[in-house]
Amino acid sequence: MKVTNKPILLVEDDQVDTMTVIRALKEIHVTNPLVNVENGEEALRYLKDAEREKPCIILLDLNMPVMNGIEFLQVIKHDEQLKRIPVVVLTTSEEQQDKVNSFNMGVAGYMAKPVDYRQFVEVMRSIDAYWTISEMPY
């Protein structure tokens, strides 16, 4: 990541998936703190809390209880403060409709979670590499 002090917000309800992300980030030596919330509503609460630091990137699962990823996108992409935070979708869904909806909401990337952990590490490595090179809004 270009900015190493800002947190990465992981919106993910599955415990093992969260562990996978944490482990993969650790394996590729990403030092940013990771904030994990379990659904869109919690993520919004976190983002709206002025006390908490805004994340440099949001890793978003789509299929979640209470508020799913698409609903979450609809809220933050209409919020002046939040809409510039890059959102990378991390999902198992290969549904065309999910991809279309996500990109309609201006996501920065759409990554399918591979079944194989090694491949997942490679995905995470790519995301890190990209956001290390890419400029960020703040």
Partner: peptide, 21 residues
């Protein structure tokens, strides 16, 4: 089909990851 794609693959992926670890 969607449920299969997500809900079936999610635990599978977890199994795969855990076995790898």
């Amino acid at each position: 089909a969607y449920v299969v794609s997500h809900d079936l693959k999610a635990p599978l992926r977890a199994i795969g990851a855990l076995a790898d670890w």
